[in-house]
Write a protein that binds this DNA or RNA. Structure first.
Length: 208
DNA sequence: AAGGGCGGCAACCGCCTGCTT
DNA sequence: GAAGCAGGCGGTTGCCGCCCT
């Protein structure tokens, strides 16, 4: 596969940057659906695009690929992200494999812009030395004080709670989880998550 | 109504890895 | 074993829209 692209003569064209137009999307989509991908660096020329191969690959994976799930992350998806991030760190591509229809970029963005701040806030509130708007929450943050914000806050606190009520036989400690200090005693991460959600038989014990 | 600030998202950048010669 | 290349990945940036003052 790689052989066929290795010594292809690539035209030296100025590559376009920035947002993709609907026309470019259509060209890329049509080309890939019709011919598949044997070599990303050859795709732009074959598809009639003035982009580089990497850009095309990214656009396809993150936006055009069939089966992508758009829209808000579900509570279950957020649980998965937080757990896996605590377990394996910022391995977004690996985390994304446990979230069908989600891309690594999407997961990363959601973590950086939302989950990380939420966790910090919950954590600091648990420590009792924070105002609700600190830790990334802006003083003018959206939905602050609204019913929606209130609801999401409660939900988040619920699924991060110690009682593990919605964790199906999982003893989960927020403080350790967010410090990357919790460990799974009896199960590998694959066993824990299976192909998708958090169904597993083992238990988490907090290791010092 | 307007401007400033923030959050969310798309895309780029640079490094790393694996493969081939 | 070294060099060159493509693909993969994580970090970062920049733009846009929404919300608040």
């Amino acid at each position: 596969m790689r052989m066929e692209c290795r010594y292809l003569k690539k035209p030296q064209v100025e590559h376009r940057k920035g947002l993709w137009s609907p026309d470019e999307d259509q060209k890329l989509k049509d080309h890939i659906l019709k011919h598949g991908v044997s070599c990303w660096s050859a795709v732009p020329a074959k598809a009639g695009l003035q982009r580089n191969g990497k850009s095309c690959r990214l656009r396809w994976i993150n936006y055009l690929r069939p089966g992508l799930k758009r829209g808000k992350f579900s509570l279950e998806e957020e649980e998965t992200i937080v757990k896996l991030q605590a377990k394996i760190g910022n391995k977004w591509s690996q985390i994304a494999t446990h979230l069908p229809g989600r891309t690594d970029n999407e997961v990363k963005n959601h973590w950086n812009s939302y989950l990380k701040k939420k966790i910090t806030r919950v954590r600091e509130e648990a420590n009792g030395h924070i105002t609700p708007t600190a830790a990334g929450g802006s003083p003018k943050g959206r939905e602050v004080g609204t019913e929606k914000e209130h609801a999401s806050k409660i939900q988040f606190a619920e699924w991060l709670s110690f009682d593990g009520a919605n964790w199906d036989s999982c003893l989960f400690n927020l403080e350790d989880a967010v410090s990357n200090q919790w460990q799974c005693k009896n199960s590998s991460i694959e066993e824990i998550c299976g192909s998708r959600s958090l169904q597993f038989d083992g238990q988490y014990d907090i290791m010092e």
